[in-house]
């Protein structure tokens, strides 16, 4: 992974201050995360770092991780996506409605028995469909991504209300809930899904032509075009991929909560964009790694978790979170400015 600490020893095997500095500079995100974890450990006398609390943290962040991965890829391609939260919410509602127990009288489709895989497939399809619409608008309709996704955000929010008739969809089947709530030994399933997605996307971004094309388009679309890369098609692909990941996020969210309502997913776009940004994805495009996004998600996660653990008022949590986002990006920008 790009963010792993590379060997800090120079040729003679002596670790010099300079090499340490260099490595630290290269992996600011990871360093921040480690510092935060250690700080939290010290402040709570190690209590916050028990296995069970870490499991909670992972479960809480996993759903957001999918959204952050999706929007992170889009930002690498010089785009942005505001529709995340509403699309995730819509997906959660649709998938939940297909996973209700058939004997539940208040179900959206009472008496009908759907196979367990159906809500998963339909949910992901809905997410992907929205991704494709965003992609078409941006790549072929030449709409600015901010505006295009602002539009689809509102559409998804509307559909969510219409579909649920503004009520909560509950009483989901146990098998369905197991998808996100189960665990393999100490490892929650959710964590396994996230790690698998990170691995696959990491391979895509670093080991395949597709990844090279994404980075090139974000770095300089004109250069990508004259190198024979179909920029429009690739933009469509990245928004569709984003939608696919929101789809997974939505399914997992309804499965984890065991219900979905019109408020599900609200505001997730901001968390996802913040996480990607804290993880070192540059909004000028072409810069950032999958590992970075992953770290960004957990950095924000650990901040919230730590503060809650220490009993910080949730209003103050917002202040702290905002400041941390600004500081993290400030140092990241400084680092890039130095290189230019």
């Amino acid at each position: 992974m790009d963010t792993k600490i590379s060997a800090v020893a120079d040729k003679k095997g002596i670790v010099t201050l300079k090499t340490i500095q260099h490595t630290l500079g290269k992996h600011t995100n990871l360093v921040t995360l480690v510092v935060l974890i250690v700080a939290l450990g010290i402040m709570t006398g190690g209590r916050a770092l028990q296995i069970s609390s870490l499991q909670n943290l992972m479960v809480a962040e996993a759903v957001r991780a999918f959204a952050a991965l999706g929007v992170g890829l889009i930002i690498i391609n010089r785009g942005i996506d505001l529709s995340i939260g509403q699309v995730v919410g819509l997906v959660a509602c649709v998938s939940a409605s297909l996973a209700q127990t058939s004997d539940y009288a208040g179900a959206l489709y009472p008496g009908t028995v759907f196979p367990v895989f159906l809500p998963i497939i339909v949910g992901i399809a809905v997410g992907t469909l929205f991704g494709i619409i965003n992609g078409l608008l941006v790549a072929y309709g030449n709409l600015p991504p901010f505006i295009a996704t602002l539009g689809t955000m509102s559409i998804a929010a509307g559909l969510q209300l219409i579909y649920t008739r503004a009520s909560t969809i509950g009483s989901l089947k146990n098998e369905y809930k197991h998808i996100a709530q189960g665990s393999l030994g100490p490892l929650p399933y959710l964590m396994i899904y996230v790690l698998a997605a990170v691995l696959i996307l990491w391979i895509m971004m670093t080991q395949t032509r597709q990844g090279k094309a994404f980075y090139a388009i974000g770095g300089n679309p004109q250069a990508a075009r004259v190198s024979g890369i179909n920029v429009k098609l690739n933009l469509l692909k990245v928004y569709a991929l984003g939608g696919f990941l929101y789809g997974i996020s939505g399914v997992l969210l309804s499965s984890r909560l065991g219900l979905a309502n019109p408020l599900t997913g609200d505001g997730m776009e901001l968390d996802a964009i913040a996480a990607a940004t804290v993880g070192g994805i540059s909004h000028s495009g072409g810069i950032g790694t999958i590992g970075g996004i992953f770290i960004g998600v957990f950095t924000l996660g650990i901040i919230t978790f730590g503060m809650t653990y220490m009993g910080v008022d949730s209003y103050y949590q917002l202040l702290v979170k905002g400041m941390i986002i600004i500081v993290a990006v400030y140092f990241d920008m400084k680092r890039h400015a130095k290189r230019a």
Partner: peptide, 20 residues
């Protein structure tokens, strides 16, 4: 005429861009 490079990527990635 206009330099068509991706500054954040390596020399080799630039040279083989689109036909790695």
């Amino acid at each position: 005429q206009e330099l068509s490079i991706v500054p954040e990527r390596s020399v080799m990635e630039n040279i083989w861009l689109g036909r790695e």
